[in-house]
Amino acid sequence: MATQYTPAQLRHAIRTGEHTTNTSGLCQGFVQCNVAILPKAWADEFLQFCQLNQKPCPVVAMAAQPGDTNLVEVAPDFDIRTDVPKYRIWKDGTLVDEVTDISSVWRDDLVTFLLGCSFSFEEALIADGLEVRNITEGKNVPMYDTNIACRAAGRFHGNTVVSMRPFKPADAIRMIQICSRFPSVHGAPIHFGDPAAIGIKDINHPEYGDAVTINAGEVPVFTACGVTPQAAIMAAKPEFCITHSPGHMVVTDIPNSKLAIL
Rank of each mutant, 00 (worst) to 15 (best):
P229K: 02
P220M: 08
I242E: 02
F182L: 12
I233W: 05
Q230I: 10
V141N: 03
T228K: 01
V212P: 08
D145G: 09
G187F: 11
R165E: 10
S163M: 06
D210R: 05
A216Q: 15
A235Y: 10
A224L: 05
N140A: 07
T228S: 03
S245D: 08
I214W: 12
V161C: 10
I190V: 15
A153I: 03
I203F: 09
F192W: 09
R155Q: 14
H205A: 15
K168N: 12
R151G: 03
Y144E: 10
T213K: 07
K201H: 14
I173H: 10
T160E: 13
T228P: 04
M143W: 01
I176F: 12
F240A: 06
N140V: 09
I233C: 03
A216F: 11
A149W: 04
P166H: 11
A149E: 13
V219G: 12
I178Q: 01
P183I: 02
V141Q: 03
Q177L: 11
A216Y: 12
P142F: 03
A188L: 08
V185Q: 07
M234F: 05
A236Q: 07
T160R: 04
E218Y: 10
F240N: 09
T160I: 06
N215L: 15
V227A: 07
N204V: 00
V212E: 08
T223M: 11
P229R: 01
E137G: 12
R151L: 13
P166K: 06
G187A: 11
P142V: 01
A211P: 13
G217K: 15
R165H: 07
I178T: 06
A235L: 10
V221M: 04
I198L: 11
G209A: 00
N159A: 03
D210K: 06
E239S: 13
G209R: 00
V185M: 06
F182V: 05
I214G: 09
A170F: 04
K168Y: 12
E207I: 04
R165M: 13
A172E: 04
K201G: 09
N147Q: 09
I200A: 04
E218M: 11
D145E: 13
P183E: 03
C241V: 01
R174Y: 10
A211Y: 12
E137M: 13
A232P: 07
A172S: 09
T243N: 02
A152F: 00
Q177P: 04
A170V: 08
S245M: 11
F222T: 02
G158R: 00
E239D: 15
M164W: 04
I135S: 02
R181Q: 15
I176D: 07
F156V: 00
I173P: 03
I190R: 14
I242R: 05
P238E: 01
D194A: 10
I203D: 05
N140E: 06
